[in-house]
Design a protein around this nucleic acid. Sequence first.
DNA 1: CTCGGAAGCC
DNA 2: GGCTTCCGAG
Length: 625
Amino acid sequence: MKTPGEPDWAYKPESSPGSRQIQLWHFILELLRKEEYHDVIAWQGDYGEFVIKDPDEVARLWGARKCKPQMNYDKLSRALRYYYNKRILHKTKGKRFTYKFNFNKLVLVNYPFIDMGSGRGVPQSAPPVPTGGTHFRFPPSTPSDVLSSSEELRSPGMFSSVARRMARGSVSDCSDGTSTNSELEEAVGADERGVGPERAFRGLLPPRLPHDSLFRVYGGGPNPAGLPRPAPRVHPEPLSPFSVSPLPGPGGLLAPTLSPALSMTPTPHLSYTPSPSLSSPMMGSHFSFNPEDMKHYLQAHTQSVYNYHLSPRAFLHYPNIVIPQPHRPTLEKPAAHHLHGPPLPLSHSLSQQSGGVDEGQHPSPFKFKLQPPPLGRKQRESGSSLAASSSSSSSSQSTSYTGSAHLNNSGPPKIKVEPISDIESEEEVEVTDISEEDELNHIDEEEEGGIFTPTARRNRHQLNNHHQANGNLRGLSAPPHTSPDEDDDEDVFKTPATPPIGGGGPAFPLLNLKSEPGQAAPISPGGTRCIPLKLRFKRRWSEDQKMEADGERDEAEDKKVRADGEEEMEEKREEAGRRGGEMENGRGGGGVILGLMLPPPPTQRRASSELQRATAQLSLENTSC
DNA sequence: CTCGGAAGCC
DNA sequence: GGCTTCCGAG
């Protein structure tokens, strides 16, 4: 029953956050969102960056959760390091016990309603993400559930069901599973009574939203038009890229919960953002839920980090959605700008692209897995030889975009956009094919989204090449040369977005370019590859910039604030990602991930708090062991 | 401290 | 697959 494209992992219950087999990163997220543990581990620094203040304690907690009394930081950190290759995390160099989630590309859109931060304390660095496992329990535990998951989304029941699950408590104890959680429980417990989780959810969402509704919600529905939102981008700190969720008000149904990520997304440059959002006075008139929005939304989900092991599938299928080719409406500007954000960040690009391509075709986009192929340093070093060959060859086919993308990026980071065509193929390919071509794609993916296919793995070394590839892509073969090193990896992380200036536009826009006719008609039908992407980008970019103006500025500032070598790069990318999430291949097929778009920081998360509480129960630790 | 290979467990 | 455990190296 699973659709062809869907990856197995999507179904895996075990990996789900709430499941017994909680994964370390879920656990970390969980701890991060609990105020109780702020002394032990907390967000700090920029996006997704967190510091383990008390390594031993974190290890202890982890050990407790996993019933591994022997756990210690050394081991835990090994596990964390293990995520480097998966692109889930990376180390913040120079800072002890400091790691950073790769939210950049990963959009946490899924499970939007999950709010992350419970604590108000949540900082700045906290991602707007749903944190922790607690919340996301979506992943069905059983196959049947899985199936249902999709249903859940659409049906009214979904939330409730979710809530129920949550209520049960995900954390299990080692022993039977029945036990509840200890520490957390208490904390949460009290609140919960007041509002049951279910209630909370329901409150958030109207009981029976058709899926349409949901989307609407996300899209813009949330804020009642009137919410006065604080200035969206107030964000003052560099740290808070993720801003906290913008939740609308308390009563809001959804809003809050709904993905902050989505809503927040500034998407400045998405030009055509559909922002239906209410808030904008201009458009406020009616928000109609556009297919685009949905699309965006869906896509976002697709890409979201959480997809990792969660099952996004649900989102995938929306056959009906047809995306018009968008184009950027210049007019509105993303109004979203501010607050609400439609989900779009990614989408636009995606939508356009995918719209055409993907969606229609395959619903299941998610092919991407986070795992990248890690090569060991050694391997890389030694491996260089291998790498060269395959990568180069593959490129040729890639569609124009790909190549173009590279070109653009060539400078600094490498970004790559997948070609649409590839995408499709990719889906299938992912696992199976590994032809040379694929390799390129994969590589690209890695850079962008961090998705890796098996193939990629093998050729990790090739990654080294990618740089070259980028340059060469269009061309074709990449020269062998390796420049491995950690930098690469990092680059990879960063890579995704990179827009030159603020706009991430360029890179992503590639896609748009395609679709956008209005502008410079950049692409001529046939020769996409040949076309001077740069020019296109440039134009596009300029437009975007105009549009983005506000948003960008902010971001720029943020960047300034920080300025660390690498980090800067990353951030840039990140930003790009956010803004431009567009680029990534939207098609789902590929797995691209996108940047998350983070939005401005609204602040409220009251509603969310309820959720949190509800979820809180889930518990972090089981003492039962 | 941090990294990552290798082996092993579930 | 996702760690856990151990460990040598930087």
